[in-house]
Design a protein around this nucleic acid. Structure first.
Length: 194
DNA sequence: GTGAAGATTAACT
DNA sequence: GTTAATCTTCACA
């Protein structure tokens, strides 16, 4: 079942815990790919120096974060990799969840072709990798997750005890914000990023 | 108009 | 553990 708007219109830390175990679905001309979300990070714009919307910075790139939850925020990093985020919370609240890792469920052959590797565990264990495997690019910026081509559906239920909180990765430039425990992973999953 | 830096990855030593 | 690849975005002039 597709997840509805209400799920996304809440604060980032709450949605981050509940989104673990859900299934990301992308329907393209090449085929369908699905993956279970096993790792996310929360970015809360106004008070998070690691966020692109820190201090309520409003720009061409961040404007989608100020809308309703349930939309896709995509950006290019280091000139070569795409990262996919889910916009959450209500209008004028710039909060997003960065998808960092998936467990491949369907369309694995297609993922292998896109990623040019045969090792299933390396298909989606990083933010840039999962976008490549799922066929997500800059064209998906602003896509509605309540639409018909890219959305989340209910997956397995994850117990609270299975959720691990830790420091976010690769944001040493962010000062005090780098110590926030805003990275959420499913304990013992072998598909999380390194 | 110009320049610096980055929510990463893969391939090195 | 270290580094190159590579280009958009933002800040400033």
């Amino acid at each position: 079942m597709k997840i509805e708007r209400d799920f996304y219109n809440r604060d980032a830390l709450t949605v981050a815990e509940e989104v673990l175990g859900k299934t990301l679905v992308h329907i393209t001309e090449e085929g369908i790919t699905k993956g279970k979300i096993v790792e996310v990070e929360a970015y809360v714009g106004p008070k998070d120096r690691a966020s692109h919307a820190y201090n309520n910075l409003y720009s061409e790139r961040t404007k989608i974060q100020y809308g309703e939850g349930g939309y896709v925020y995509v950006y290019l990093i280091y000139g070569m990799h795409i990262c996919m985020n889910i916009v959450v919370n209500k209008i004028s609240m710039p909060e997003v969840l960065l998808l960092r890792a998936l467990e491949p469920l369907e369309g694995i052959e297609l993922m292998k072709k896109r990623r040019k590797t045969d090792k299933v565990k390396l298909l989606c264990n990083g933010p840039g990798k999962l976008c490549q495997a799922m066929g997500i690019g800059k064209d998906n910026y602003g896509e509605d997750l309540c639409g018909d081509f890219l959305y989340l559906e209910n997956g397995v239920l994850v117990q609270k005890e299975q959720i691990l909180k830790s420091k976010r990765i690769n944001i040493d430039y962010a000062g005090e914000a780098k110590d926030y425990l805003w990275r959420f992973t499913i304990k013992d999953s072998s598909y999380v990023s390194k």
